[in-house]
Amino acid sequence: MFTSLGRYILLLRLSFKKPEKFSVYWNEVIREMISVGIGSLGIIAIISVFIGAVAAIQVAFQLSSPLVPLSIVGSISRDSTILEFSPTISALVLAGRVGSSIASQIGTMRVTEQIDALEIMGVNAPGYLIAPKIISGVSMIPLLTIISVALGLGGGYLACLTSSTITPTDYIQGLQDGFKPIIVTVCAVKSIVYGFLITSICAYNGFYTEGGALEVGQSATRGVVYSCVMVLFADLMISSMLL
């Protein structure tokens, strides 16, 4: 375990060494940002709308009492979406979509000796292959989380349009009542940490792949599983420290 942790830290240090040619690295960062951001936008949008709608319906069902104001549905849905649903569920989905892609891509380059060729040419392989992916994850996953929050709250509004339990007016009133800025801070911290964990862990597993095509698939699976576990652990730790 400690050996793996040491290799992981060393790989991160090598990844963020001063680049040989900044323009080449910058082009790679832009390409990765497009891949992570635009490539994941569709699945994040679909999941966010449906989760927001389901959250509003379930909260309305559980709080259907004349003693509870209907606007509380909007407040609970808002806090749940910002604090947990959008950052964490989006991260778990992105671990499968982005993380597996990163691990398999780097793992394939390792088993086909492309990484060895880069090192022979004097290129810092971790810096060229891993740093752009980490930068894109740290920058684009928070942006996807913002979009997810907006679409999740919009999904709750759409659910209210089709539900007789709560009106859209009460839902919007609940979104405005009792807002605490700390939940936005927690959401931002979570999304940044998740982006780093997903990209770095999956890149590590891909970089140290040994064998052939079968081992590439195993590395991708291992990277997704480990990153999901660390996302859930980080979720617990961040929530405990900031809330």
Score class of each variant (00 low, 15 high):
D177N: 08
I9A: 13
S65Q: 09
I102C: 08
M121S: 14
I130L: 10
V186F: 01
I120N: 01
G122C: 09
V184S: 04
S77Y: 00
R222D: 04
I166P: 01
I147D: 00
S86M: 09
L70C: 03
L63Y: 14
T3R: 10
I166H: 02
S100F: 09
L144N: 06
M241L: 15
F2K: 14
Q105L: 05
G156S: 13
M121F: 14
T3S: 11
R13T: 10
T162Y: 13
L129T: 04
T108L: 10
F196W: 14
S101A: 15
L14H: 10
Q173L: 10
Y128F: 14
I182R: 08
P69Y: 06
A220S: 12
S191T: 12
L161H: 08
L243Y: 14
I46Y: 07
E28L: 14
G74F: 05
F2Q: 14
L83N: 12
A60E: 12
D170I: 07
T81R: 02
D170F: 11
T3G: 13
T209C: 08
E84W: 02
L70D: 02
A159D: 12
L242I: 15
C187M: 05
S86G: 05
P87L: 04
A60W: 04
T209L: 03
G122R: 05
R97C: 07
L5D: 04
E32H: 08
T88E: 03
T162W: 09
E210F: 12
S15I: 02
S240C: 07
I38C: 06
I192C: 07
T3N: 07
G154E: 07
T169N: 13
S80C: 12
T162N: 15
A188M: 07
S4P: 07
Y171C: 04
